[in-house]
């Protein structure tokens, strides 16, 4: 158990080092820079350099410890009870926004509305009194952002 963990973290270290040394593929290991990524009202490029997986995105969006989007939004997920109504209904949201705009809202809704209650799902800094276990972390990973985005893009008005 311990040994395999060691190998994993060693592999992680190698990948991390490789990235910092020069591979430019964006990834979680590389520091995400909102100012650089943002273009107008959106983030046009995938945070992972690849498209996300909509099916995974759906479950990450619903997961209480990850996206927990249902705390505030309605989604077309009738198997889930109790959708929140703090934010707008997300059914049809892809007909209202382009993918780049949706990505910026996921990463940092506060960029567009500084007073918003919607958390910045992929920002590490700028917080007050974060609990120790969450310090230096983002709510969801770059991969999660791309997966949820791939799911949101399927939510077209019928």
């Amino acid at each position: 158990m311990k040994f395999s963990k060691l190998i994993y973290s060693f592999a992680g270290l190698m990948i991390g080092t490789a990235l910092t040394i020069g591979l430019s593929a964006p990834s979680d290991a590389a520091e995400f820079d909102l100012a650089k990524a943002r273009v107008g009202d959106g983030i046009p490029k995938s945070l992972t350099g690849k498209p996300g997986n909509a099916k995974k995105g759906r479950s990450t969006a619903i997961h209480r410890k990850k996206g927990n989007c249902l705390a505030c939004h309605t989604l077309p997920a009738p198997e889930q009870a109790d959708h929140g109504n703090i934010g707008p209904d997300l059914r049809g949201v892809a007909s209202r926004y382009k993918p780049a705009e949706l990505r910026l809202r996921l990463v940092s809704a506060k960029t567009l509305n500084p007073d918003t209650i919607m958390p910045s799902f992929h920002l590490k800094t700028g917080y007050h009194r974060v609990q120790k276990k969450w310090q230096g972390k983002t709510i969801i990973s770059a991969q999660d952002v791309e997966d949820i985005l791939a799911y949101l893009v399927t939510l077209k008005e019928k």
């Binding site: 703090i86 910045s120 917080y127």
Partner: peptide, 28 residues
């Protein structure tokens, strides 16, 4: 009124701005 924590919410967000709304099954 101060935002706090990784979710970056203030008491005011939940208990003034959105009082009466549903956070899943909880009415704020």
């Amino acid at each position: 009124e101060q935002r706090r924590g990784l979710l970056d919410l203030s008491c005011k967000h939940c208990h003034e701005d959105y009082a009466g709304s549903l956070a899943r099954s909880n009415v704020l």
